Amino acid sequence: MPDPRPEVLDFLLTRRSRPAKTLAAPAPAREDLIPLLTAAARSPDHGKLEPWRFVVLERLALDRLAGLVRARGAALGEAEETIAKAAAAYADSPLAVAVIASPKPSEKIPESEQLLSAGAVCLALLNAALAAGWGANWLTGWPVYDRGFLEDGLELAPHEQVAGVIHIGTETVTPPDRPRPDVDAITTWVRA
């Protein structure tokens, strides 16, 4: 017999990310962030490989990364508007957690499943932050696909990549809800 948790289901049915540009200080302190990371680390992980890790980006690190985005963007010939938008995501964020996909060698668990596990960690961290009352948003952007940014800015190993950057802070505005998928249109029921 199921043991329903209607308050959890209600949260999931009404959850709404907060645009990163609307987040402000204060951000969670270390002691506030640890339970959120702990909740995220409980994500499905076939084979118990822990094919992900966290890089917590505090204020000074975010400023450094904003500068690196500007430098890398110029070196790559990105448009000034594209560079400015990506740099602002770091410069304006009160705190961010980069979820690093770090696949492990495994004969049983394909890398694709390990990457999906890292994505599950991103969503779990986002939801944990929202459930704890923080504003939060999951972003990526062109810098996380640039090896120079990943290696110089985040010191990632060659086999690692960013699954997502979860920005966390204090909500300054409540955004309106947006249209949601039509579940009937995207669901197929297989009876036999």
Rank of each mutant, 00 (worst) to 15 (best):
D10L: 11
A124L: 08
P6N: 05
G164K: 01
P94D: 10
E7M: 10
E155Y: 05
A25F: 11
S93E: 02
R53Q: 09
M1R: 12
P176A: 13
K48T: 09
G169S: 03
K21R: 14
K48A: 15
L57H: 04
P35W: 07
T170Q: 12
T170H: 03
A71K: 13
V121K: 06
A75Y: 03
A40W: 00
A132Q: 07
G77A: 06
E7L: 12
A20P: 02
G77D: 10
G141L: 09
V173N: 11
G77I: 05
L95V: 06
R5F: 14
T187P: 09
A41L: 07
P105F: 09
L36K: 02
D184T: 14
A25N: 11
L125N: 04
V183N: 08
T14M: 10
P28T: 05
P51T: 00
L150D: 10
G133P: 08
A20L: 11
V99R: 01
D184L: 13
H159T: 13
T188I: 12
L115E: 08
A124N: 15
V173C: 10
D32K: 07
I109P: 01
P110I: 04
V99N: 01
V190H: 15
E111M: 04
A79S: 11
A96S: 15
P179R: 11
V55F: 00
S112E: 14
A20H: 11
P110Q: 05
L130G: 04
M1N: 12
L60I: 07
R191K: 14
E111N: 03
V144P: 03
L156Q: 01
R64Q: 13
L36I: 08
P44L: 04
G133H: 09
Q161P: 01
E160A: 07
E7G: 02
L62P: 10
L65E: 03
L139E: 14
K85A: 15
P2N: 12
F11T: 10
A101T: 03
S106H: 00
A128C: 06
G73I: 08
A88Q: 14
W142Y: 07
A128H: 02
A131W: 07
S93R: 08
W134C: 01
A27W: 05
R191D: 14
D10G: 08
G148F: 08
E7D: 14
V55H: 10
A27V: 06
I34N: 03
V165Y: 00
V121W: 05
A120P: 02
Q161T: 14
A41E: 11
A20K: 10
P51K: 00
A118N: 03
T82W: 10
V8L: 15
A96M: 14
L12Q: 05
G141Q: 09
E111L: 03
